[in-house]
Design a protein around this nucleic acid. Structure first.
Lengths: 107, 107
DNA sequence: GCACAAGTTCAGTTGACACTTACGCAAGCC
DNA sequence: GGCTTGCGTAAGTGTCAACTGAACTTGTGC
């Protein structure tokens, strides 16, 4: 999840992900979309996205076809929804914080 | 939005955000939660979160109280939902999905 | 006014990362 | 077997970001 979030922090990778969101594309077609960056850079971005599970790769002859893994995106969304308010753990933190506040005020 | 995503890419900042999600806390209380990092580092993280609009600051005497700005988080979530499939493309995807549903049902 | 407490900010260091160029490697095609 | 196409990997570089320690700011209580 950490990897997915870090991968999405890079604008170029978000753009790539959008390109392969609804269409499976070979690496070259993706790279052609970015005139200001080399093919190599795009390939490395694809590697990061793949490592984060946000993209899947399929080989076809010499080509490699990429497409977005939407289920991973769903998981990410869900993580973002849940992380901040995760039940007992959050309550515990709040209680601890309140106690420190009180201690500081008293002491 | 780019700033918010980048801010969330850092685990420590996610933790901070969770701390101030449901409780307003002074900077020191937040810093006390991170034993492996100095107060200064936490202050800088708070600056990033604030710049990204994910956190709001209120002054009370010498203290500064922080709390999460949930509306910004909602916007982020919405952005994540919409960015990949925007406008016509999203409609097309929906149509395709409906067709696949139909094909699956028929087949 | 002085001391202290709460926090930020400045200067400098270190590590991560996006990038480029060059090279390597596999799969068709002649 | 050579040639070309499609693409990843290696090595090196510049930039940025997270961190530390020291200095600074601002408010409070005496």
């Amino acid at each position: 999840m950490d990897a997915a979030l870090k991968a999405l922090a890079e604008p170029r990778r978000r753009e790539i992900l959008r390109l392969v969101w609804s269409a499976e594309l070979p690496a070259t077609a993706i790279a052609d979309h970015f005139s200001e960056v080399t093919r190599s850079a795009v390939s490395q971005h694809l590697g990061v996205l793949k490592a984060a599970g946000l993209v899947s790769e399929r080989r076809d002859g010499t080509r490699r076809l990429y497409r977005a893994d939407r289920s991973e995106m769903r998981q990410l969304r869900r993580f973002l929804d849940d992380y901040w308010t995760s039940g007992l753990e959050r309550l515990r933190d709040a209680a601890e914080a309140a106690q420190r506040e009180k201690d500081a005020a008293d002491g």
